[in-house]
Design a protein around this nucleic acid. Structure first.
Lengths: 325, 325
DNA sequence: TTGTACGCGTTATCAA
DNA sequence: TTGATAACGCGTACAA
């Protein structure tokens, strides 16, 4: 029963006793609806019976572009495009007639990556800025991709960006530590590949507050954290990069017999659910991403329609003070 | 310079002064390599100059199927197909000539979802079992999808599954608690949508050990955890569903003045990095997923080639005893 | 109101 | 060795 080749609109036409064009008209609800309700019913019925599904490739070939929005962004949990946000973005794009797709998961970049993406003739490509090169962008343009959007730290010349304000995180955290009376500020920069760049951006922001900030490279490792704890004189305010690093430090400070926030103040970022579980509870910078999906979808849609667009801010920042500062 | 329509293989042929068929032969490295090295060079050069990228839709139309492996699986952080695993799977599939794609992010299911997937004429579809219905599978089959694979708790009749042994997690955790001398066993079942089903599966496994197990529905919430802590008589062994829940409980027990593991033993699951940060350190069940990508890729490839296949186990389990039990 | 005919870019067959 | 040519499934201008 299922060894045959997929049904085509021609098959549907035959089954319904009409021409293939009529099938196309009916199934796409062409405005010039000069087709009798009875014919329409026959066509729809035949399509259903045959399990007809249109061939996206053929449609793309005919119309020149697929409605695919291709995402090539890092999939960091709790990162800017975390699960719930992608779901929401998918909904927004679906409502506008696009098909959202995450391309692969490898971190290929440059021209090779651009060629692979371009084969699908997507309407839009959203890629991490670290994966977009000038030549790669040229490949996408040449392949007819209408919207090319960068996402990440370093903006790419010539394409609009989805901005994630990491500098702002550092600045807000340090400003808060200063307000709480800390004078010596330390900022943690994670050693992990992929996190390091964001750490450096947050450090830049931390330094923008105008006071000296000591940067400390730190691996996510208890030994390193213990050494870091031992290196403190007491009285510092530590911006721990994110909540997980903050929890690492809290454990190290605890083991070293240091009081938080008495001996040292700690602030993280992300407002993870588990960060409420520490004692004292963790102060944190919370990125509010609720507007991101709608903004991103609007940006994509406008670019596809050929309207000029500015960069978009994905989040706004909010300080959550709990007890560790 | 870039307002034109994308270059086609015909354009390349003209630029290289050969026929379009020759272009196809050269770029696809056809075995009948009866084409002079000099011609090949001219063709490749022209393709490069024009920024030629083949049209995946046209190829799919011609050959009948795209090399796309379509993933429609939940994107739970630390879930079975977490970031690193997807990356590895992508590499495995890429090496076999497939293009891995995650379709959207919405949790559509059944026939509607299947039709949307089928439009792309993918070679394979890997979908959460909760999204596959009999009718949906029929749609995919009819559209020529060679490999249909379920992933999740309840296996779907007629399609091979990627199994994640949640029962085994519960069984291993409880067996360990019993070995440590705990007699009254409590298993936490999360209230959260999406986690609940896995919690119930783990509970089934916990009960398979042969001793009575008290199930406790718990929201990820400090108040609920405090109430749970107050409800214990002391001496219990608690399987906390996962590490995050275990950390929630550890905080609640701490606040209630209960000693771990003296008054109550706790074991989690996942071996998250942060779970090493609690005091006492958290015992946990670690799912070893290192073999999953290769196994999955092999399964997909075999199915596409028409070979019959059995289910595949994605992980094996390992007990990590630290100090909370 | 419906059907005919063409073209989109690719691959594959066949003839030169 | 290479070059026409057909076919894949769909959308649409135009004819009937």
């Amino acid at each position: 029963m299922s060894g045959n080749r997929p049904a085509t609109s021609m098959d549907v036409a035959r089954a319904a006793g009409v021409s293939q064009a009529t099938v196309s008209y009916v199934l796409n609800d062409r405005p010039g609806s000069r087709i009798s309700e009875e014919t329409r019913a026959r066509v729809r019925d035949a399509a259903e019976r045959l399990g007809y599904v249109p061939h996206a490739g053929a449609r793309t070939l005919r119309t020149g572009s697929s409605g695919v929005v291709l995402l090539a962004v890092p999939d960091i949990p709790q990162g800017p495009l975390a699960t719930g946000l992608l779901e929401e973005l998918d909904r927004e794009l679906g409502g506008r007639g696009y098909t959202m797709v995450q391309y692969g998961a490898r971190r290929t970049k440059g021209v090779a990556a651009a060629k692979a993406w371009a084969e699908l003739r997507p309407a839009a490509v959203v890629a991490d800025t670290s994966r977009l090169t000038r030549a790669g962008i040229e490949v996408l343009r040449a392949a007819g991709v209408r919207a090319i959007i960068g996402m990440g730290l370093a903006p790419v010349a010539g394409v609009p960006s989805l901005r994630t304000d990491h500098e702002g995180v550092g600045a807000l955290a340090v400003r808060h530590l200063l307000e709480r009376g800390r004078e010596r500020i330390v900022a943690v920069v994670p050693r992990e590949e992929g996190l390091r760049e964001m750490g450096l951006a947050r450090l830049r922001g931390a330094r923008s507050a105008g006071v000296p900030v000591t940067a400390v490279d730190l691996a996510f490792d208890e030994g390193a954290a213990a050494a870091f704890a031992a290196s403190l004189a007491g009285g510092e305010g530590v911006f721990a990069y994110n909540d997980e690093y903050a929890m690492l430090l809290l454990a190290a400070f605890h083991d070293a017999g240091m009081e938080v926030p008495g001996d040292v103040a700690v602030i993280g970022c992300d407002d993870l659910p588990i960060s409420r579980l520490t004692r004292p509870r963790l102060s944190t910078v919370r990125p509010d991403l609720s507007a991101a999906p709608a903004r991103t979808a609007t940006l994509i849609d406008r670019l596809v329609r050929g309207m000029p667009c500015d960069d978009v801010d994905l989040w706004t920042l909010q300080l959550i003070r709990r007890g560790s500062t």
